[in-house]
């Protein structure tokens, strides 16, 4: 069965870009959404193996989403990556402190993301 990955990103073009990078890894399936609210809905409906989120989003921001995920009994152990333009050290520290596994700053190389996915999902 394919690994399910949730991508939360409010920019459509960026979303497509991340999704295509994710799907270039064999055996994974990308699910995308543009808001934190929709992410909460999807998380409650099905099980994801990995979550990728942006930070600065309207409504529920990325930090709030990470906090939710990391406090959730279901998702506590699920790896979560941040992909954002916020390159400042304090943002990175905040994200990692809340429990993000990786913190990528745009622009990133698709290969870098692919490598991380394979490592966290244990794909050979």
């Amino acid at each position: 069965m394919a690994y399910k990955i949730l991508i939360v990103e409010d920019s459509k073009a960026s979303r497509e870009f991340i999704a295509s990078a994710v799907e270039s890894v064999g055996g994974v399936e990308a699910f995308t959404t543009s808001t934190g609210f929709d992410a909460l809905k999807l998380l409650s409906r099905q099980r994801f193996d990995l979550i990728i989120t942006d930070l600065n989003m309207p409504g529920i921001n990325g930090l709030e989403l990470i906090n939710f995920v990391k406090k959730s009994p279901t998702y506590r152990e699920t790896p979560l990556f941040v992909i954002t333009t916020e390159g400042r050290e304090q943002d990175r520290a905040k994200g990692l402190a809340l429990g993000a596994a990786e913190y990528l700053v745009k622009p990133f190389e698709p290969q870098q993301l692919e490598g991380l996915l394979m490592r966290y999902l244990n794909i050979a």
């Binding site: 920019s11 073009a13 960026s14 870009f17 600065n56 309207p58 954002t84 333009t85 622009p107």
Partner: peptide
Amino acid sequence: FRSAHSLKGLAAMFG
């Protein structure tokens, strides 16, 4: 601010 931020993220993503 959000518009400028989105533009920054988008442009950075596409190099």
